[in-house]
């Protein structure tokens, strides 16, 4: 871990318009929860809000965060300024990951807890279940998207295809996708705390191990890509 890289990444996240959009997405989820809870009975609409926050807002926040800490710098090559230093590439990757992870947990998973508590104050367990699901999925999402950002210029589109098409659309049709879907693993963990989250049925052990393997593997891969970072001319 490198404090300077972490600080620079955090500044890149908070800076400019990206920061506003990053704040806006969780804001909307929580606002929706507040409006729904004000207009309906306790617990009504819980599923709809949690689904929105978990299947859409969380991966998009993770993607935005991971892409922001690495994407532009790799894209325009200005990451050489960070790499032309006697600092281990893996420590750079881990520091960047830490910044993206913090943003994903704070702006992707935490809103699940907050909106859950707003919608059904009588059952905090359910809210914490969703939070756990979001934390596990967010941990793996941000790592995977970081690896994508280190791998390709089209990281954002590939990430969207994975999260929304593979896990979202296809995941609803083909049950087997739960074995290779980060969202499903998160739910599995969340269901352990509160069955209302609705586990995917992969088993807790598999879900945890799979999420961990993806996280560690992705961050390692990102560091390895940085080790082989190639500077190209403008030509």
């Amino acid at each position: 871990m490198n404090a300077t890289i972490l600080r620079l990444s955090a500044q890149a996240l908070a800076g400019r318009r990206r920061g506003i959009v990053l704040m806006l997405i969780p804001g909307i989820v929580v606002l929706l929860a507040i409006v729904v809870s004000a207009l309906t009975d306790d617990g009504q609409g819980y599923e709809a809000v949690a689904n929105l926050g978990f299947t859409l807002a969380l991966p998009i926040v993770a993607l935005l965060a991971a892409a922001a800490v690495l994407g532009p710098e790799v894209d325009d090559g200005s990451i050489v300024y960070l790499l032309a230093k006697p600092v281990s590439r893996h420590s750079i990757a881990i520091s960047k990951y830490a910044a993206a992870w913090g943003a994903t947990i704070g702006l992707g998973a935490l809103p699940l807890l907050v909106s859950g508590l707003v919608l059904e104050p009588s059952d905090p367990g359910r809210a914490f279940g969703w939070f756990a699901a979001g934390a596990v999925a967010g941990t793996a999402y941000s790592a995977l998207f970081l690896a994508l950002a280190a791998l390709t210029r089209h990281a954002v589109v590939v990430g969207l295809l994975f999260a929304l098409l593979w896990e979202g659309v296809l995941g609803n049709v083909l049950a087997g996708i739960r074995w290779v879907a980060i969202g499903a693993w998160g739910r599995e963990v969340g269901a352990e705390i509160s069955p209302l989250v609705g586990g995917a049925g992969t088993g807790l052990g598999y879900a945890l191990i799979a999420a961990m393997v993806v996280t560690v593997g992705s961050v390692y891969f990102a560091g390895d890509r940085l080790r082989s970072f190639t500077l190209r001319g403008d030509e």
């Binding site: 050489v80 300024y81 032309a84 006697p86 500077l231």
Partner: peptide
């Protein structure tokens, strides 16, 4: 010490912050 042709994309930092970050990264 490398001065690449690439532009700096750290527009959100001040010149001093940027140079200082480089100093810190060199330990």
């Amino acid at each position: 010490g490398l001065v690449p042709e690439r532009e700096l994309s750290f527009g959100y930092l001040t010149g001093r912050q940027f140079v200082r970050a480089n100093a810190e990264l060199h330990g």
